[in-house]
Structure formats: structure tokens, C-alpha cells
Write a protein that binds this DNA or RNA. Sequence first.
DNA 1: GCACCTATGTAACAACGTGCAACAAAATCG
DNA 2: CGATTTTGTTGCACGTTGTTACATAGGTGC
Lengths: 245, 245
Amino acid sequence: MAIPRILVVDDDSEMRQMMTQFLRQNGTIALPASSEREVQSHLDGGRVDLILLDVMLGDENGLQICRRLREEQDVPVIMVSALSADHQRMAGYAVGADDYITKPFNPELLLARVKAVLSRARRSSSLVHRRNTKTFRFAGWTYRAKSQEVLSPDNIQVALSQRETALLQVLLANPHIPLTRTEIAVAFDVTGSTSQSTEAMGRSIDVLVGRLRSKIETNPKAPQILKTERGVGYVFSVDVTAEDE
Amino acid sequence: MAIPRILVVDDDSEMRQMMTQFLRQNGTIALPASSEREVQSHLDGGRVDLILLDVMLGDENGLQICRRLREEQDVPVIMVSALSADHQRMAGYAVGADDYITKPFNPELLLARVKAVLSRARRSSSLVHRRNTKTFRFAGWTYRAKSQEVLSPDNIQVALSQRETALLQVLLANPHIPLTRTEIAVAFDVTGSTSQSTEAMGRSIDVLVGRLRSKIETNPKAPQILKTERGVGYVFSVDVTAEDE
DNA sequence: GCACCTATGTAACAACGTGCAACAAAATCG
DNA sequence: CGATTTTGTTGCACGTTGTTACATAGGTGC
């Protein structure tokens, strides 16, 4: 592979500079950025192999950015944050981050984890790094991330609400992996800092699942796509492919 | 099958049991192991989606095992260790681990990181991944693993519950071999592991067997397929053939 | 044969998880 | 502002799973 290109996203200029400098001294191309807009322009402009993403970016939220990135493409993301509580870490993983590193960190260790993520991405390089993967297909259905529209196998357009779209995105990012209600809720509540108790969230996820099923399942009574894992949660149990627009 | 299979490698039986139990309670198949030999036999024997590998394994070294694994295969590895110094973590990443978790850890966080690694692996190789949707035939009956349905000799569809399906799968995997109630229970992971006396688990298996019989036996009073081995357990006493879909 | 004991079959029940309709609250839009 | 859509909550129905009590089958010793 060519020299890895790493996007360093942090609004603290000192931290940003330290990371870019260190990464450059260790054989990578480090590209600084401090806002989602800059991230997008880099993604549009050229190849990016990895994103180091700060969680607290001024008024922007790194977790939300990560979730949006996941919806569009498959570029590896390592969250970097001073928030070290377990539920905050879990929120990072829930939105699809590949790793979560807390500040302050040992630069050498950061480098090791960067290489680990790059290594895995490289080992399965066939489909990774595809740019502009904004259309998902599953079981004959099509989901266009940009317009947040769903097309049935008959090409009939189905409108999803915001919550239903968010649920579908989480599921599409984790096909064949059973997700607990808590994990789904955490992925939604990206602002974080919520409790992680199962009881506190009530049955809203169940109802939401039912609503999504009524729109995408041929027979909601016997779901083929979004299946229930009794005592655990729910699974998106069909294959998902991501394609270019 | 869609459920992720995770190999839990630790020589501390208590820790191993805790991890396997927790993973099983969260929708994965957890396979315990305590030595490199056992790891190899699992890798030879069936699909493994992820390995949780303790660093200190008696006289064996988890790092070396991980390195050897990397030379041969591409299975994701998460190192688990009480060694938390930076250079020890870096050693883990250096031998190709995908993540490095230090003991003691929050099980929920472990689960989040397990799923993060699984998610990336799945996304990267979605096409390589093939479902083994096998079809079993026995005594005129057909069992389709994917839909968890059985078709009677008359091609009448019969729906099985989760537990009944699990029982049938265990039986289909062990035709003509008498299984004790404990063995069946362990296969379900009713309790997590061994220490269950026959009395402690009650009669749930008996009742379950009865329920399955009522669905697949022509005359449940005189079972021809799922026979009782008095004082021992139960036997699936007809031949089984398995085909790929 | 009989009495006796133990293992198993199973109906009835309880505990629990989930689907869903109906309602309430909140957000959105004109 | 009211109208409409979306989202969360609640109660109930229903299926699944484990427990219990009792009936029955199989075995043993007499």
C-alpha cells in the first residue's frame, strides 16, 4: 500500500499540531482539520485511509460526525477524547468507531493503534476505501443515505421518519450482529451522558422496531430482515452491500 | 449461521467462564479454550469470527500465539491482559492484535469493542462471508436452519420455538448418540457451565423434549425419533443427512 | 403375581419477553 | 395559533419458557 493518509480532526490547534507532526515523523501523511466541513472537503478531494476524530469539536459533535461518516463510507475512524467514562467510550463504539483513545495518551501507543486499524483495513482491502458509498442494498431494498429514502424491491419509495432512519442506519452498520436495545439507544443518543440502565429507556425501541418493520417487512408478523433475538435484542439478518451513487 | 462465534482463550477458568457466559447472554456463541492446542482445534473444526486471547496463559504466551495466528489466518484477535503498561499494550498491537483490553474490564465495554471489531470484519468481507444455511433431513422430515422451520413428510410447515430449535440442532448434530440432560443444557447455556448437578436444573429439559416430540413425532406417546434412554437422557435415533442450500 | 421405588411424561400454572394498538406528549409546519 | 406528523408511554394480548404436581411407566426384590 502507498503511504497511509491520516486525517487529524481536532479543534485544539496545539493538540492537532502535535498529532500531525508525530504521525508525519513516523511515516504517514497527516492532514489537519478542525471541522466537519474540512473533513468533507478532504474526503471529496482525495484518498483518506484513517480519521482521528476528536469527540468535542467546539459546537460540533464528533460522535454525530462519525455516525454520518459511517452512513456514507467505510473509512476507519479512531475517536480521540478526554471523556473516559465507560458509557462515553461505548457511545463511540456504538456510532461505529474502530477504536477509542482517551486523552492524554502516549503518542507511541496512538501510533500502534493507528497501525493496527490500518493493518486490518489493508488485510481486507478488497472492498474497503470505496469512496462515495452512499447507497445500501439489502434483500432487494435500496437505501440512499443522502436523501434518506428507501426504495422497495418494486422501486416504490417509502418514507421513513427520522428515528426509523437512524435505526436503519445502525442496523445497516451492523449486519448479522445482534444489537441490544441499550446499544441501539446509545447510538441514537449521540449527545451522550445518559444512563445505561435497561429499565430507564422503557419500550420505545420495541415500538420503533415495530414501526420500521411495518414499512420494510413484507410480512411484519414473520420478519425476515429485522429479526428478534429473544432475551437479547434485534438482528439485521440479511446481507448488506454498499455501492457508489 | 448469523450469530458470531467467539473463541474465549484464558487459562483462568473463572475469568473464562465469566466472559463466555456474558457473551452468550448477549447474543453470541462463545467457545471456551485454554491452550493454543484447543484454539487450533477450534479453528480447524469450524468457523470462528473472533478470538479473545489472554496474554498470560500458564506457560504459553498469548502474544506468540497471536503472532502465529497472524501468519496463517485473518481471524480478528482482541488481546485481554492484566498487563496495562504502554509498552505491553504496544507489544499486543505489534503482534497484530486488533484491540487490547486490560483487566479488570467492564463487560459492557468488552462487548462494545467485540462488536466494533466484528462489525469492521463483516463490512470488509461481506461477500466472502457465506451463510451455511444447511438443510437437514431425517425420517422424511426437513429442517431448514435459516428459517428455523421444519417440514413434515407431507410438506406441512411447523414452526419451532427458539428453545425447540436449539434442542433439535443439538440432536441433529449428535444422531444416535445418547445425550444427558446436562449436556443438552450446557449446549443451550442455561447456566454458563459445568457445575450444574442434575437436580439443580429441574425438569425443564424433559418438558422441552415433550414439546418437541408433540411437534415432530407422529405418536408422541411412542416416540420413534427422539427416544428416551432411561437413566441417561435422550437419543435422536434416526439417520440424519445434511445438505447445503 | 405383588408392593415399592425411581425415572419420565405431561398438564396446569406462573413468570417473562415481545408485538402492538391506543393514547399522550412533543415536535414540525403552515 | 391550530393542524399534522413524529415520538414516547402504557396496557393488554399472546407466545415462550421454566416450575410444579401428579400420573404413569419401568425396574427391583419379594
